[in-house]
Computed example of a mutant assay.
Amino acid sequence: MNIKLLGLLGAAVLFAGCTKTAEVKTPVNMKAKNYAEALRSADKSCKVDEDCTSVNKGCCMCAGKEAVNKEAAAALKPIWEKECALAACTLQMCYVEINTSCRQGACVGTPKPMKEYFAQ
């Protein structure tokens, strides 16, 4: 009787080990209450400059840009579009663009040089 019980317990342990799933890492907190919270949680990891891009910090262009991982940018896009669809922004020229790069495994943004805003 004890041998059957031990066999059953062993099978249960093996089955439990086989059904354990790997943790899935999401590029942003999909339960975020708003775009700003989702942006704060955005993945900024990278290996090369091409892993990085910039996203808006808020609904209006003058809010600036933030450097994030491209997968995080794709996940943020529908959240931004939903939240900012009816946002009222002023129509003024803002110098808030950034150039993104990968430094020490994280996406970073540096202000775009003023000369790059104007046609040569």
Rank of each mutant, 00 (worst) to 15 (best):
C94Y: 12
G10A: 04
G109Y: 00
E71A: 12
N29C: 14
A67T: 00
I3V: 15
L86K: 10
P111R: 08
M114N: 10
K44W: 00
E66Y: 01
A74Q: 12
A12F: 08
G10P: 01
T19C: 06
C59E: 07
R103A: 05
F15A: 11
K47T: 02
G17W: 10
E66I: 04
S45M: 01
G109W: 00
V28W: 02
A106H: 00
A16R: 05
C84K: 03
E97K: 12
K47Q: 06
C102F: 01
K31I: 15
L9S: 07
Q120V: 09
E83A: 03
R103H: 04
T26K: 14
A12R: 04
P111D: 10
E97T: 11
Y117Q: 12
C107P: 00
A106F: 00
E23Y: 12
K33W: 13
C107T: 01
M93D: 13
K25Y: 08
G64Y: 04
V13E: 02
E71N: 14
D49H: 06
A75H: 07
A85Y: 08
T19Y: 03
S41N: 14
D51K: 03
P27M: 05
C89I: 06
K82I: 04
A11G: 04
V108L: 00
E116S: 15
W80K: 05
A88Y: 11
A38R: 06
V55R: 01
K57S: 03
N2R: 12
A36S: 10
K70D: 08
G109F: 00
E23V: 13
C60F: 05
R40F: 14
L76R: 03
R103G: 02
K115D: 09
T110V: 09
K25R: 11
R40A: 11
K77F: 13
V55I: 09
N2T: 14
K77P: 08
A22R: 11
K47R: 12
Y117S: 12
A42P: 03
A42T: 04
D49Q: 02
Q92L: 13
V96S: 07
T90I: 10
M93H: 12
A74C: 13
K112R: 15
L86R: 10
K65F: 08
Y35M: 02
T110Q: 07
C59F: 05
S45A: 09
R40C: 09
L5Q: 14
T53M: 02
S45R: 02
K47Y: 02
N2I: 14
P78E: 09
V55W: 01
V108Q: 00
V55M: 06
Y117C: 14
N69G: 03
A106V: 00
V28T: 10
S54D: 04
A16P: 02
A73G: 07
T21F: 05
W80A: 04
L91H: 07
I79K: 05
Q104T: 09
L8F: 08
A75L: 10
N56M: 10
A11M: 05
E50M: 04
N29Y: 11
L86P: 01
V28A: 04
V13S: 03
K57M: 05
P113R: 09
